[in-house]
Design a protein around this nucleic acid. Structure first.
Lengths: 114, 114
DNA sequence: CGGGATCCCGAAGGATACTG
DNA sequence: CAGTATCCTTCGGGATCCCG
């Protein structure tokens, strides 16, 4: 996952802390709750739920609950959510090209102020 | 200022809360401390200083202090800082095209859950 | 399995006042 | 003018436990 896209150390964010990562997880197709939780290793169920609800409200994804036991819930990007990939990729592209410069500047500053 | 670029209600952020706005303020050329403070009406000197220092560390802008009385300090984007305008504009473009959909979805959700 | 309910903490950042 | 210094509030998000 996230291959070819520099880490979150870059200066870009979409919405809250997790929105962009969730979109990346859903980029390849629908995912279940735990299928999202696993790659986002450090996220708690509460926060994941909150993020998903917010994104559902904003029309970025759909939530489909099947009335089964055990329960099954599937999240999928809407066209609107998918359209966010374009500007997100612009951000990733910037990071690929310029993140090293930013890190260098940061290091140089650290070196000059002991 | 900010003309043609939808408000911060959009889901995009660059770095912290103020970074993107500061870049927009500096887009047209160098600005002094108070020239930044004025259009960002609600920012306090402390927070503006912190943001500017962080951006200086990251090589996004330069700080030039003239030894005069009264003091004069000028902030100016570096090439690196200016390069951020490209992905920022991609985000603005997304907002221009899709923000209405997002707001509509949000309104529809509010209407369906009283 | 997919959450909901509670409690809690640290850091961002706002308010206010003061200064070289 | 361009900040510093202090204090204080907010709140995103983590930990934990529980449930249908």
């Amino acid at each position: 996952m996230f291959t070819g896209c520099p880490p979150a150390a870059g200066p870009f964010r979409v919405g809250d802390k997790w929105t962009a990562k969730i979109i990346r997880c859903l980029e390849q197709g629908p995912r279940r709750f735990t299928e999202l939780q696993t790659p986002l290793r450090t996220i708690t169920p509460k926060v994941l739920t909150e993020s998903l609800r917010a994104m559902e409200r904003d029309g970025l994804l759909t939530r489909t609950a099947y009335d089964e036991i055990p329960p099954r819930v599937v999240y999928e990007l809407t066209d609107l959510g998918r359209s966010l990939l374009e500007p997100m990729n612009a951000g990733c592209e910037w990071s690929r090209r310029h993140l090293a410069e930013l890190m260098d500047a940061r290091d140089a500053w650290h070196a000059s102020t002991p």
